[in-house]
Structure formats: C-alpha cells, structure tokens
Amino acid sequence: MIGGSAGSFQVVASILGSLPKNYELPIFLCLHRLKHVRTGFVEVLSLKSAIPVIEPYDKEPIKPGRAYLAPANYHMYIELGNKFALSTEAPLNHSRPSIDLSFVTAAQVYRNKLVGIILSGANKDGAYGLKKVAEYGGTTIVQDPNTCEVRTMTEAALQMGNVNHIFSIDKIASFVANLKAI
C-alpha cells in the first residue's frame, strides 16, 4: 500500500511503470489529489502503468495484479474477506482519502504480508498508519526525504519510528517489482 501527496505522482508512475506484466500482488494507492484534478487521474496513471489501474467500487473483491486507487472524496478501507469498503466520513486531518485510515485497515487484514510505503507529501497523513503497519508485523518503507519534492510527509513518518527502509525512487520501484505472493 502506497500513500503520497504533493510530489508523489511521478514516483507512483515510475513504480507502476516498472512492474512486470504478470505481477502477482494487488497494489493500493492512497493519494491526495488537488480539488481540480479529480478526474483523469486514473487515465493518466493507466498510461504509465504495466498493470491495470482501477478506482474500486464499494465491496469490490480485491484481485492480484491490479493497482487500486482510492477514489477522490472517499476514504478507502480494506475489509476482511478481501473486499474494499468506502466511506464519506468527514476528512481526517484535512484528508479524504485518509492515508492513515487506509493503512490501519490494511494492516489489520494483511498483517505481516503488508508492505507500507510513504512517498513525498506536504502534510503528516500516513505517519500514524505506517506505524500501525509496523506494529502488525508488516514491512515499512519511506521515500528518502532528499529525493522528495516535498519532504513533510516522509519526515513525519520517519519520526514515528519503526521504518525498515529509506529508499530512493529507483530502489522503491525495484523493491516493489520484485515482491512475490506468499
């Protein structure tokens, strides 16, 4: 699961672009979007991605080999039984989707099988969620703040502690591409 905000779009694009076509895992993207670029986001990411990029419907079953993008203006939860659940609850820390909420629910479901990644961003959303990923035994990665367009989000995540890897963009991309289903 990848969380990002300002300055993360290019990073996400290069991660999705370097995946093998027969990728075995689902990827979850929880990205803050500017108000005026609500539409067209999926289309642009799809062009760069090696696997299909989808904004999931509520209760849609999660399938491997897809990248799921949290829909604009909804929180995206992972439910037991491998399904999504959406919510229009008020923004949390000014964010909807909230990276924290997505991460916490995914951590509870996937536990040590979850890899949580925080990318460039201008607020602190995601730091709490990443800590929870670690507590449930998952792997945590933060983009090297020196490679971030905006470093606030990665620095907040690092301050929470429990981060396994600090990676450059290329390192993140190859790490994700080499993950296998267990």
Partner: peptide, 9 residues
C-alpha cells in the same frame, strides 16, 4: 454494517 467504518465511528 461494514465493519471497519463502524469501528471507526
């Protein structure tokens, strides 16, 4: 009800 969102509420 959906469990995650109910818990959160």
């Amino acid at each position: 009800y959906s469990e995650k969102s109910l818990k959160r509420r």
